[in-house]
Nucleic acid binder design. Structure first.
Lengths: 337, 337
DNA sequence: TTGTAGGCGTTATCAA
DNA sequence: TTGATAACGCCTACAA
């Protein structure tokens, strides 16, 4: 079987006995071509297996129908899920998704922004709002539409996301209402990560409001072991917290594992809360009390907003996706005494 | 702040007082330009913030430095993980990843292949080997290098993956060695999914080899609830199986949940096994006995192979990534009687 | 409704 | 070592 050279518009035009302009129109504005010729053309397209060349099209139309997403890593299930639905919506709109990862490093993000620009992305999805001004300027000077997702942002820019701070605040209030006075937190690494730092801020604000004084916060990388280790450190200090709130479910599940290893009952001896409501949280025993974050809905909303931005349609500056506390079994009253 | 038109090669050339050809050479073959002029050019590039236009470059060079991946869905953690490492390796090689999803539908996969071709992907990552011949032909006629991943394949084509059948076979032998004679299986949907069907085949082959006769297999979609439901059906039939082997960990964890709901102890009343070793499997109680599948390593190996294929370097036709049985707590001897 | 023709930004071939 | 210049494949006024 011989390798067949890719057919061009010219080939199709010749096969259908029309000009290249007509073929182009058949593909991009079918209503501007009379039915009979259109059918003839489409037949030729089919027969030759023609697919338009992206380079040529991009060059001539100044449009790539490509959208870029720069996320920390797909290994984090919450991003994988959001990106999946983001991509599905894009795909329906005829756009293709270009994916890059920053590994939580602003410098690397900056590089990837360059890659996306150079590939002519029509729009860009970024995560959160915490980034060097240089990265933002870079984008704005190019006038390329972009969006922060997974969180709400500052006074300018477009965002589709959750109010991480408020959700953490509400959850903390609930913990306090259960009677806890000694609360500690295992947060995600907050440097250049506004989701992590907002969650920490939310917890701090609520404990302050309740007059509990400054709570202890350990920041830990995103991993079960890291959560376990931080939990160990927290629980060997005196006075021991009666509730440990975690910046995400992975840390929380790691903490639960460590609690079991230490012979601590949850929630009998210590309450634990998470954030994200990943699959695993419904499955551990007892079930993890956490904050449900609808990543799929967010991905879809982000795609729709970015599409509008690209089309220069009017959009709200921020879209807040509501979250909800999911009470399962890891939050109880503090141990007596 | 005004939006700044993207500078072109021409702009840089003018700023540096050279021809566009020289600028192009500075970027693509620096050694062919004398140092002094090169420095002058690079300065202009820097000053203008020039990034080459992808469309123009693709058109002129017939190369896109783009690689496509068409996977069922990123929501499945095993793909998300593999794609992440795939992307990282690609990125280091200066290639960008285009992502599309097939939703496990061959028809949709075919469409996405078209999209990738039309975008000039230099190479393609597909999942597994089960697909209509038409999809394969489409690719081969174009002469575009592609790769099946996550499984090994038939007599032709390139593959980087696991021997799903052999791994399932080995695990089943282990189950039988524990004394189980009544084994049932909850498999993934096998239609056009060779990973799922190979795992089922492996289990069947081992039970046959042991003279256990035809075992009951229920196929279920990829979801906790689906695993739970299938498990319920299996355990209400007579005679009840003493071991339920699952085609993936998600089904297995669903089965474990259902077992608890039914008041069945695992592994006291029934043993359960999984496949994939996702995060959750180490965290459930008891820990799930399963097959560890190194997705990251596979993603990396796939990227390296595809890169070589694109460069027309010689490669092995198949690369097998080894798997390993992970014994945790869900596999025990069958209940007495 | 259809065709003609110029141009999009880059690379690559040839000369100089 | 550098510079002209002709592709590359497509889109889009503009003309017919």
């Amino acid at each position: 079987m011989n390798e067949i050279a890719r057919p061009t518009l010219d080939d199709v035009a010749r096969a259908a006995g029309v000009s290249t302009a007509t073929v182009s129109r058949c593909l991009n504005a079918p209503e501007r071509v009379i039915t009979t010729t259109r059918e003839r053309v489409m037949q030729a397209v089919e027969a030759l297996g023609y697919t338009p060349d992206f380079g040529g099209r991009a060059l001539a139309s100044r449009r790539t129908n490509t959208v870029g997403a720069i996320i920390p890593t797909m290994e984090n299930a919450i991003f994988a899920r959001g990106v999946q639905s983001f991509q599905e919506v894009l795909s329906k709109a005829g756009k293709t998704l270009l994916v890059a990862s920053s590994g939580y490093d602003p410098e690397h993000e900056r590089e990837q922004i360059g890659v996306m620009i150079s590939r002519g992305a029509d729009g860009l999805l970024l995560i959160g709002s915490a980034r060097p001004q240089a990265n933002v300027d870079y984008l704005r000077r190019r006038g390329i539409p972009y969006l922060g997702a997974w969180n709400l942002g500052g006074p300018e820019g477009h965002f589709v996301g959750f109010n991480n701070r408020a959700a953490a605040f509400d959850l903390t209030r609930r913990v306090i209402a259960r009677g806890h006075r000694r609360i500690a937190m295992i947060g995600g690494i907050s440097y250049m990560n506004d989701r992590a730092s907002d969650r920490i801020d939310g917890v701090r604000a609520a404990t302050r409001e309740a007059g509990l004084g400054e709570i202890r916060v350990i920041e830990a990388p995103y991993g079960f072991d890291d959560g376990a280790e931080a939990f160990g450190a927290l629980m060997t200090a005196e006075p021991r917290p009666t509730a440990v709130m975690c910046g995400n479910d992975v840390l929380a599940v790691g903490a639960m594992r460590k609690a079991r290893e230490m012979g601590l009952r949850v929630p009998g001896d210590v309450s634990i809360t998470g954030f994200d409501d990943i699959d695993i949280s419904a499955v551990v025993d007892p079930g993890l009390t956490t904050v449900r974050v609808p990543h799929r809905r967010m991905g879809e909303a982000a795609a729709e907003m970015l599409l509008k931005l690209i089309d220069k349609q009017p959009v709200d500056r921020q879209i807040e996706i509501p979250t909800a506390i999911v009470e399962r079994g890891t939050l109880g009253p503090p141990p007596a005494g």
